[in-house]
Nucleic acid binder design. Structure first.
Lengths: 158, 158
DNA sequence: CACAATTTAATTGTGATCAATTATATATCG
DNA sequence: CGATATATAATTGATCACAATTAAATTGTG
C-alpha cells in the first residue's frame, strides 16, 4: 500500500466533522483577525504604528489623560500588554505616562502635541480598511454584532 | 470600517465616529479572537496544548505526514510561526519532524502514538466551546461566513 | 553539464498577549 | 494607630505572529 493510499484510508476513517479545521467558527474568526492585522500593517506603516498601538491612540484621541486601568477596560487588554506598548509609544514621543497626583498608583496617559497631530493622518484609515474589506455595510454590521455577542458570552462567565 | 452613528448627540459630538473604538468592526473581531483564545485555554489545559498547537494537531489528525508548507497553507501561518511551534510539540513527544526522502528541503510531520491518542481527549472540545459561546448554530454559521468572506477579500489582493 | 532561479525551512528580531508574580500606594478595620 | 486587605502598575516568562533574511536543496535553462 502506498503512502497516499494509507493517508486516504486514515482520512476517511477519521471523519469527525467537528474536529475539521474547515468547519470551525473559531478558526475562521482567528484567521480573519490575523488577516485584519496584516491588512492594517501597510496602512499604518506611514503612521509608524502597529494595530494595537493604533487602537491605543484611537482611545487617547477621545479620552486624553485616561489611566492604564480604564484604557485596559476599553481595549480588553491588561497591564502586561499595555505597559510595554505604552512605553514604545512614549519613546516615539506620542504620549507621556504621568503618575496620578491624587493617587500615585495610577498612571495617566497624556498625548503629546505630536500624538495629537497624528490623528489627522489616521482619519483616512477607517475608510481605507472599509474598501479593503470589500463587504457591504450591512454585512459588516452583522459581523460586528456576532463578534460582540460572542465576546460578551465568553467573557461574562468569569 | 465603522458603523455610522445615527444620533451623535453625546458629549463628543465633534468627534469623528469612524475613529471611535465602539464603532469599529475590526476591533470587535480582534477582541472576539482574543476572547476565544482565552476561552480555549482552560479547556486545552488538560491536553497541555495552546490554541495554535491544538489547530496543528487537528490538521495532523486528518493529514498525518503533511509537510510544513502544506500545513501553513491550511492554517494560514508561515514557517516563522510553525517551526518553533512544531519543535515544542515534538519536545512533548506528540509528533516527529522528518526530512523528506525524495526532497530533502521539506519536513514531513508525523504523529507519534501519543499524538494519535490525544485525539480521543480532543473530541469533546468542540462541543464544550459551542456551549461556552452560548450562540445558536445559525448565528455561528452566519458569523463564520462573514469571517471567511473578509478573510478572502483581505488576502486575495495580498 | 554548469549555473542561475526557485522552493522549502529555519533563523532572527520586533512586538503582542497573557498568566503569575511583585512592588507600591491606598483603603479598611480592629 | 497599626495590621491587614485591596487596588494599580510593572515585571517576568512563555508563546505566538510575522517581516526579513539566510541556508540548503531542487529545478530550469543555456
Amino acid at each position: 500500500m502506498t503512502k497516499e493510499q494509507a493517508n486516504r484510508t486514515q482520512q476517511e476513517a477519521s471523519e469527525n466533522p467537528d474536529l475539521m479545521i474547515e468547519n470551525q467558527v473559531c478558526f475562521s474568526l482567528y484567521s480573519a483577525a490575523n488577516a485584519i492585522i496584516r491588512a492594517y500593517r501597510p496602512m499604518l506603516k506611514s503612521l509608524d504604528l502597529t494595530y494595537p498601538q493604533y487602537l491605543v491612540m484611537i482611545v487617547l484621541w477621545q479620552y486624553d489623560g485616561i489611566n492604564v486601568k480604564a484604557l485596559g477596560n476599553k481595549l480588553h487588554l491588561d497591564s502586561g500588554t499595555l505597559t510595554p506598548l505604552l512605553k514604545r509609544l512614549e519613546s516615539k514621543q506620542l504620549l507621556s505616562r504621568v503618575r496620578g497626583e491624587k493617587d500615585e498608583r495610577v498612571r495617566e496617559i497624556y498625548l503629546t502635541e505630536q500624538g495629537q497631530k497624528l490623528k489627522a493622518q489616521a482619519e483616512k484609515v477607517p475608510n481605507q480598511m472599509l474598501c479593503k474589506s470589500k463587504l457591504p455595510i450591512d454585512e459588516l454590521l452583522t459581523l460586528k454584532t456576532g463578534c460582540d455577542k460572542i465576546y460578551e458570552n465568553l467573557e461574562e462567565g468569569e
